[in-house]
Simulated scan of single mutants.
Amino acid sequence: MSSRTPDNYLAIDTASPVLSVALAAGNNEWYFEADAGSVHSQLIMEVVDMLCEKARITPQELSAVFCMRGPGSFTGLRIGFAGAKGLALALDIPFIPVSTLDCMARPFSMWPGIVIPVIDAKKNAYFYALYSDGNRISSDADAGADTITGQIRETRNRQSGELPHILLTGPDTGKLRDELTQDEEISRSGCLRIAPFCRAGYARELLAIAKEQTATPGDFFAGPDYIRKSDAELNSEKQKENVR
């Protein structure tokens, strides 16, 4: 890699319909966030150029590009990976994917209990992971409320037997809360809370992780971490099985 200013980081989040981009240059930061729908790919480079212009740097002065690894929207993740990889390859700088759930949990690292970032995965399931004291204590998962209920029970205090304070964060927390509180023990304990402010895009958090320099450069040949196969892939597999 060529030598560059070490602190010009670009963060791109396309894991949801919201396009969220952040740039750190020197001691300053710039942000852009908008509901891009299905036109992320048409806007990414325009937004990057706009933020670089505001920061008075050129894209050639960037030192690394960060993007969401997943989980999230299949199409959105592919677009983000393609944009980040293309830019990193063109500029000969590191391409660094970061877990979407890590970014969602990061603002609540001081929560005195368990933090569960949540993305509605449809089909009565959620993408989620568990965090405690700012550290991940489970892998990314794709499961329904019953499974999440079981994991919450496993985190109870071994001495008192009480459930910990649970903070749900993300755009789909209300739906999961309603399902979890159908469990008598969780409902009776009053342990569930919903984060008061859930961002639609997480480029700010992605940028914060970038500045901590704890993430690992990605493989340019690797793809996003979808966790679940797409409907198209599942339908294709069914068709192949039927042919057999």
Rank of each mutant, 00 (worst) to 15 (best):
A141L: 11
R158F: 00
G223H: 05
G80R: 09
D7S: 13
N27I: 01
Q182V: 03
L176Y: 05
D172L: 00
T100Q: 09
F81H: 12
I93Q: 10
R69M: 01
L130F: 15
K85L: 11
G26H: 04
Y31F: 15
Q213F: 01
A222R: 13
P112M: 02
I186Q: 02
E185H: 01
I12L: 12
L130E: 04
A232P: 07
D140W: 02
E154L: 12
L62W: 12
G170L: 03
S132W: 00
R199A: 15
I93E: 09
V48Q: 11
G26P: 04
S230T: 15
I114E: 00
M104T: 03
F95L: 15
T214V: 14
D92V: 05
H40R: 11
G170T: 07
G144Q: 07
W30K: 02
M1I: 10
L62Y: 11
V115S: 01
I119Q: 08
L168D: 11
N28D: 14
A222W: 07
G72D: 07
A105E: 09
V18Q: 03
D146E: 15
M104E: 06
L163F: 05
I114H: 00
P71G: 09
L168P: 09
L10Y: 04
S230C: 11
L23V: 05
Y226G: 09
